[in-house]
Design a protein around this nucleic acid. Sequence first.
DNA 1: TCTTCTGACACCTTTGAAGAGT
DNA 2: AACTCTTCAAAGGTGTCAGAAG
Length: 389
Amino acid sequence: MEVNHELEEEEGNLPDVPLADPPAPVPTSPPSCLTTEKPNFATDATTEGKAISVASNECSSTLSSPAEAKPAVTPPPILEQTFDQTPATSQILSATDPVKSPGAKDFPAVLTFKGVSVTLENNTIWKQFCQCGTEMILTKQGRRMFPYCRYRLAGLDPNRMYSLVLSIVPSSPFRYRWNTSRWEANGPTEHQSQGLIRAFPHHYSPCLGSDWMSCLVSFYKLKLTNCFQDQEGHMILHSMHRYIPRLHIIPVLDGATPTVDKPVVMGPESITFTFPQTEFMAVTTYQNFRITQLKINHNPFAKGFREDGNNSRLQRIHPPAVSPETRTKLLKPAEPAEQQEEVMDLSGLEIEFLRPNQGCRLEVSGCLSATASFNSDTPNQHTNFIACW
DNA sequence: TCTTCTGACACCTTTGAAGAGT
DNA sequence: AACTCTTCAAAGGTGTCAGAAG
């Protein structure tokens, strides 16, 4: 039983947030190749009302706030920044380097590059977590992210097929330790040079641009694990290391139906979007009390830990020795911790595109080109993949 | 001794089946 | 017979905590 809200319709609980550069509506005709895997928007629409309120009801509520609506009503400055402009490589767009950023509050919710806009829909909650130093729990069986990555896309070619892939890459070459109230670098990582990074293709990939743009794209299904023998398709990370999710928008070549023998080429039109506010520390146990409180306050599944007043469990967890005033103080945002980060070289990393129970691997070479393949029992989905970073 | 990890636990929400009512 | 609504059990997500492991 799953909460069906990976493709979230605009209607429902979410306010209608105008986009910075909405594309002109173009009539769409679903391709025959999507008959089995195409999002069932009608079905999704009926479930989204519930689903959105489930997985991120706080997100949606905060979206209603003036603060959150602002970037949509008044589009933030369009940020066009390109890395690796070399031909045959994809474009990587990041709002700003988190190391050099003065504070999380300035991170834009919308990134635009070559006419393609990606909005981090739950930007408000991401910023709240970012200001405290987001932590994500890793478990052996896999733990969902919270907040999770939820995007709204605009500017895609409505009639073109795109694949959306989320990868989570190391954002720092260090291993960290929690020292009383802050994260401190604790030596270089031992893993990343030969580490295995997986990428998570969205369940409905590939899909028409019009379909991607007509709904919210959520990667709520993504689970994080520290189990390196994981066969469930979860994202394998190292605890006490810092990571950042990246969204890859990969146009599918016209007329090219991916097969095992005909891999899809990720050419220069592919774009990677990185929102610095989504950076997080992978942990097995929460270290920062403020993060714990934010999770409890915002994640509906943790409602049982909220300070409702009549929760016997909470009374055991938080005995009266800690006064409400003290706890309130603890919950106040701390000064932005001084961060020590560097741009790291991802050369030599291996990236595995996830297809549960189906092994496949993508190698990233030093020249930032990459190849990958995955099998699928669904003939309409990518079965092979070649990417250029 | 300290840090990190693991598994059990209680509590929560959602889903879907089953039944009743219209 | 078809549809809608309610109830309830099951599944799965959540943070906490004690103990294990290194």
